[in-house]
């Protein structure tokens, strides 16, 4: 952890700020949220690393998708993701957002979340332990440092594609497109 490295702060305050002030929106999509209370309270205390839960997407820059994603929740996830200010990072938590997990044959669950919103990283497991969240956060730091955590840029560039996938899953969306630019081709 290079939080106390003053030189780095002067060199790239943007990156350092993003790294050490990750504000996660607490949004429980499924069972995974049960691992978050121990993470933010006395046992593991995520605030040590500047990670705190915030109440609204406008204030947050880290989106933890905790657990399986039903079609109904997907709508809210997309809405919340679009309301977050850039730069924003998303982490899929648990097996279900990755490939459906134990809900692989459910009619009402989204199998591959990254078809609908871009994901910076995954935490596999069912359930992952709280320590896994810290591993994910440290990994996210590395990605931010290397400039690889650019999923939000991808969303902007390929918005047409994402929007098409979203409409495929949800039917007609009742909110206007976020970006007018961004082609649909992969």
């Amino acid at each position: 952890m290079d939080r106390n490295d003053i030189k780095k702060w002067f060199k790239s305050p943007d990156k350092m700020g993003d790294k050490y002030s990750l504000w996660a929106i607490y949004f429980c999509t499924g069972c995974g949220i049960i691992e978050i209370p121990p993470v933010i309270t006395a046992r593991w205390d995520a605030e040590r690393f500047g990670v705190i839960p915030v109440a609204t997407p406008r204030q947050s820059n880290l989106f933890l998708i905790t657990g399986y994603v039903s079609v109904k929740t997907l709508r809210a996830i997309i809405r919340t993701y679009e309301q977050m200010p850039e730069p924003k990072y998303t982490v899929g938590f648990g097996s279900c957002p990755i490939n459906g997990g134990m809900y692989w044959d459910s009619y009402n669950t989204i199998k591959h979340l990254d078809k609908y919103i871009p994901i910076d990283g995954w935490i596999a497991g069912c359930m992952p332990r709280p320590e896994a969240i810290f591993v994910a956060v440290t990994h996210l730091w590395t990605l931010i440092d290397q400039g690889k955590a650019k999923a939000y840029v991808k969303y902007r560039e390929k918005y047409g594609l994402y929007r098409k996938n979203q409409e495929m899953a949800l039917g007609k969306l009742d909110w206007p497109p976020l970006y007018t630019t961004g082609g649909g081709n992969d």
Partner: peptide
């Protein structure tokens, strides 16, 4: 942003 693009716990409110 437009006025109706407001936080509503993930819902889009007409």
């Amino acid at each position: 942003i437009a006025q109706d693009d407001s936080y509503a716990a993930g819902a889009y409110v007409p």
